[in-house]
Computed example of a mutant assay.
Amino acid sequence: MTYIVWGQVPLPLVALWAAALAAVLFTRMAYALRLLSVEPADARPALSRMTGFAFANGAVTGASMPLFFHALSFEGQALLTMVLVCWSAGGVSTAAAHARAFYAFVGPTLVPAAAVWAMTGSLQNIILGVLILMFGLIQIFFVRDNERVVRESFSIRYDNARLMKALEAERQEAALARDRAEDANRAKSRFLAAASHDLRQPLHALSLYSAVLKLRATDPNTGEIAEQISKASSALTALVDSLLDISKLDAGAIHPELRPFDLRKFVERIGADFRPLAEQKGLAFSVETSDAEVLSDPVLLERVLRNLLDNAVKYTRDGSVRLVAAVHADHVRLAV
């Protein structure tokens, strides 16, 4: 701007205008720095003050047109107008987040320029003044849309932050509920593991009484009833044993006792117990094993295999059941 008017406008007038513009700009910068250092509790008064600074900046900037226009050549007038138009366009990016600040700036910047050109009386200059005003209106619409986009982006960001906070709270509540449930389940498992003897004792006594009743039965009907009681007691004992074993596993009360044993004898013995059950259902039963000595807990392993075979025989309607023990390098794969 100084380059344009240098030598054509009196120096005191240029200095006065430049001092006024510098005072507005430095005051606004100082206020903005203070806002950055101390965040206000309510942003609305700060926005109003920044809008006032924008108006003062636009008024001082726009005053250059009536102050300098008539002292300049036509080329200088055109260049001065171009600088003001570009200056106002630069405010689009700086005031996009708060459209009112741009409205306060662009009006006093471009209206004097349009008025000065129109007051020359030339039709061409009047059209130029109208074009300047239309350019300002286009910028206003553009800034309004930019403000809407900025506000929506901040709204989405805050909504996402609130959603993440709510999800985190729900996650913590779910984790707390899961921990409580796991604690309760472990407490239940520890209780059942500790009470296993007390739970098995009545069943064992019932089994003994049914056996005695069967031996001392005086007629066939009594013996049949005793036999049914014994079968029901055995089934109930097996079910309770399974439940207690699961509870012991959950409670960590079962510890494997590893020792070497013969794989073929182990597998064939278990297969021999289930072969009659399978044949009673009309199922083919086969055992495939290998000669090997393995290191494991035979008691726990046998219980696992018996559960698998029991389910296989129980839920297979037709076909066959196979028990396979295959040696692979340094381990054995058991499959039902």
Rank of each mutant, 00 (worst) to 15 (best):
H328F: 10
L295E: 14
L300V: 06
G319H: 10
D241G: 07
H255W: 06
A238L: 04
T289Q: 03
E293G: 13
V299K: 03
P260H: 11
E293W: 08
L263I: 10
R306N: 05
E279P: 07
E268N: 11
L308T: 03
A326K: 15
S296Y: 09
A272K: 14
L309M: 04
L244Q: 01
R317P: 14
G271F: 01
L300G: 02
D241F: 00
A272E: 09
F261T: 09
K314N: 08
A253W: 03
I270P: 01
L263F: 13
L283T: 02
F261Y: 06
L323I: 01
L258D: 13
I246V: 14
V324N: 07
D250Q: 14
L244P: 07
D318M: 11
D245Q: 11
I254G: 00
E268R: 11
F285P: 01
K314A: 12
L239R: 13
A272G: 13
Q280W: 08
A326W: 09
F274V: 08
R275H: 13
G271H: 09
R317F: 12
A251M: 07
E302K: 05
V321S: 06
L301Y: 04
T289Y: 04
R317D: 15
A329I: 08
V324M: 05
A253C: 07
D297P: 11
D310A: 10
A272Q: 10
L277G: 10
L300Y: 00
A272M: 11
S320T: 04
S320L: 06
F274C: 07
L239M: 06
F285C: 02
L301A: 03
P276E: 06
D330G: 12
E302I: 08
V324F: 05
A253H: 05
G319I: 08
K281N: 14
A292I: 10
G271I: 04
R303I: 11
L236M: 10
L305N: 01
L295D: 06
L236P: 01
G319W: 09
K314W: 09
A292M: 12
